[in-house]
Every structure is written in C-alpha cells, then in structure tokens.
Design a binder for these strands. Structure first.
Lengths: 233, 233
DNA sequence: TGCTGAAATTTGATATATCAAGCTCGCGAC
DNA sequence: GTCGCGAGCTTGATATATCAAATTTCAGCA
C-alpha cells in the first residue's frame, strides 16, 4: 500500500461542494438579515427563480429552510413572506445568549489545557488588535474565540444551533467594531470569559458569556434597526 | 354592516391546512426521534417517495427541513443520512433547558395578573391529576403550562425554537409519567416555577425552569436510549 | 489471485410540466 | 350604486423528466 509511504491526507469534506440551494439560501438570508429585503416582503418562487437564473426546485428548498429558521412564513397556496423585524432580532440575540452561555458552561467543565492555551493565545492577539484598531482582524479573532469555546465543549449540535441565531452580517460587524469604546468593552468581556474558563468555573463562564452576548447583541440590533429607520425617513 | 350586529370571529389560520411535505416531515421526525429509523440510516429520496406514495418534491423539502433541524445530514450527490444519537439528544435537551430558562426569565418580567391566574389554575389541575395518576391529562396540562409561560413572555420566535428541541414523542412521555415518583418531582418543579413567576423573580424563574428541564430531559434521554440498548440485545 | 478500469447503475440535483387554490377584476342583476 | 358571481390570472403544490456525480459491477489483464 502506498499510503504507508507518504503523509496521511485529510479526507475531503463533500459538504464543501454545495449546490444551488445553499447559494440561494445564503443570498436570501443575507438580504433578509441586512434589511435589503424588508419584513413582510413576498418571496415569489418563479420570480426568484428567474432573478437568480435557476429553476424553482432549489428556490423551494431554500425557502423551506428560511421558514424553518423563522425568517419566513409560508401560507399554503398563498405564498411566502419575510418575517424579520427588530422584535425577532432581539429574540434571536437572546436565544444566542442563552445557548452561548450554556455552551460556555459546558466548556468550563470540559476544556483541556491545550485548548485553554489556544484560547489564551487568541485573547492575547485580540488585545493587540484591539489596541491597534485592526477591525478585520478583530472580526476573525472573535469568531476564532467563540469557535474554540464551542470546540472545547464538544457540542456540535449546540454549535450549529448557535450559528443559526446570527442576526448581523459582516458589514454590520465592521461598523460596530469601528467604535473604539465598543472594542474596549468587547475585549474586557472576552478576557473575563477566558478567566472563568481558566478557573474551570461553569457558573462564572456562563454568566460572563451570556452578559457579553446579550450586551453585544442588543448593541447590534439597536444599531441595525436605528440605521434602517433613518434610511426610511 | 352586519359585523356590528354579531360576535367577532377569529381569523382562520391557513397554515393549519398543511401539505404533503409537512406530513412527510412529521412522519420522518417521529420515526427518527423514536428510534424507529436508527442514526446513520440512509434516507433515499425515491424509496421514501414510493413508500409514502408521493413524488420526490415534498420528500426533498422534508429532508431539507430535517437537515436544518440537525436530524439529518446530506452529502451532495451522495445522500442523506439520519444523525440522532444519545449524545445529540442530550445536547438538544440542554438547548431546550437554556431556552426555556431564558423564556421563563422574560415571562417573570412581563407576566400580567390574568396570565398568572391562568397558570396557577393549571398548576392546581396538575396537583389533582398528579395525585390521581391521570397521565394523559398530565401530558396535556404540561403542555398547557409551558405554553402559557411562553405566551406570557411574548416571545414567538423563542417559542418556535424551543418546540424544535423536542426529543421525545407522546409514547415516551406516557411511560415516564407512568412512574409516580417522577410525577411527584415534576409537580414540585412546576410549582416552584409558578412561585417564582408569581414573585416576578426572573433569576428564580430561570433557575427553576432550567433545573426542571435539565432533569426531566436527562431522564427522558436516559430512559429512551437505555430502552433501545435493551431492544438491540 | 488480485488489481485496473470502463460500463452499468444508483442517486441526488436541477429543470420543467401540470394541477388546483386564491386572487383580481369586471360584467350584469337588482 | 352595490352586491354577486364567474372567467382569467397568479402562484404555490406536486409530479415527472433529465442530468451528472458517485458507486458498484465485472470483464480483462498481469
């Protein structure tokens, strides 16, 4: 066997080659969350199919998924409408907070030293990026930080569920983190979460994580919907 | 206008008239959660279509939904497989606990006296049904209790999200509540949740609700998967 | 016997056709 | 003028056809 003679390769993940339905879903989700498609707007299958240059089949699948995520509702034989307003964005942020808190609690119980060291390294990089005001880097580190905690918890289902509660896009994130004060607050919160994990203190980890996500989520929602109100007037 | 002369009617909800995809989804979800279709089993579109006597279109939509719920994974051009094991059931129970806790917290802040009285009435009925060992009634009251709290919170999105974390079917529920000790524990917990709501104490409400759902969830998961292990041997 | 590779098969992905429920709008009766 | 009613249109729901990737099968060769 030749495999014994060379380095072992990672198996490819077939799910990376995604089909049209995922592109359609992503495009629609982005447009809905960013407010480009307002709440209440109709999502016409044939119209979307023509606009996106695909058939109605992948459109239907994408719409079903949006429906399941709570971003759209379908009335049989009537049509699908977007349902995403400030109220729902707040609830999604709260859901995220509750779930991130729970996963942080589990991570505090299960994290090993290697993972803890990696998280600490991320926090140190965040400290630097925060001081420098390197926003794109901060966004990447943010994700890395939260993903590392999810990994440490070992909870894949919770991770997936949390990912589904995103109420901001990359652009919104950039705007928020453009403010130095917000960067400072976020860093302090991240540091507190790390400290709790380092002490393997589940209660503290959950509280710190939840407070962070609640505050940050509120900030995002307020900023996003205030902006929309302005643009509307 | 004749409407002024008679009682106002509630608007009909068109979503009650559901199509094939919802039936397919429900059938599959039930089969997966109950263990009838084991984790790892392939879900063949054409085979399911023939079995259920429908075309592949509603099957695809149902599979997409299951995928989004985390109960199945699809590898493009390869197929869809069930993914639901004890580990995931535990995570779903934890997600439910975190979310139910959050919604109870909000309910404690927002509940009005009328809703509180209704919840209290439900608890009193639970007391009677618990003593009598009336299991079907207890199941119904349980749902009524939790739904009333969800309503009091005003959080429709959270309510939907929580409903998606169900890891037991009606049958499992009956078996669990067949045990008098379990009925007693559940009643004490429900009473504690009500007391916290009555005091408008968000922290206590969240803690009581979460503890209840965590314990009850663990019990359900353990019972369900122990039973499967036995049947397998 | 064991390996290679091409053909056949399976299966999901996508496109298209068909059906029926709702909606729109205007004609006509009162 | 208003209400009733139906023809025609719109649209989602469902079924079927087509395409291509992935897998399997098996003949042919070393």
């Amino acid at each position: 066997m030749s495999t014994a003679a060379r380095a072992r390769l990672d198996p490819v993940d077939p799910s990376l080659l995604r089909g049209l339905r995922d592109h359609v879903h992503e495009a629609l989700r982005r447009a809905i969350v960013s407010g480009e498609i307002p709440s209440g707007a109709a999502l016409n299958e044939r119209q979307l199919a023509e606009e996106l240059g695909v058939s109605t089949t992948p459109i239907k699948e994408a719409l079903r998924r949006l429906e399941n995520e709570g971003l759209a509702v379908t009335e049989p034989r009537r049509g699908t409408r977007v349902t995403f307003d400030a109220r729902q964005a707040e609830e999604m942020a709260l859901a995220r907070a509750a779930l991130e808190g729970m996963i942080a609690r589990l991570a505090a119980q299960r994290v090993d030293d290697a993972a803890l060291a990696a998280i600490q390294a991320t926090v140190e990089q965040m400290r630097a990026a925060t001081a420098e005001g390197d926003v794109p880097r901060l966004i990447a580190l943010n994700e890395q930080f939260h993903d590392a905690i999810h990994d440490a918890s070992g909870c894949r289902y919770l991770h997936r569920l949390i990912e589904g509660q995103r109420v901001y896009d990359h652009t919104a994130r950039s705007i928020i983190l453009g403010d130095a004060e917000e960067r400072g607050r976020a860093f302090a919160e991240h540091a507190a979460i790390f400290e709790a994990l380092a002490r393997r203190d589940p209660d503290a980890a959950e509280t710190a994580m939840r407070d962070h996500v609640v505050r940050s989520g509120r900030h995002h929602v307020k900023a996003a919907f205030d902006r929309r109100k302005e643009q509307a007037s």
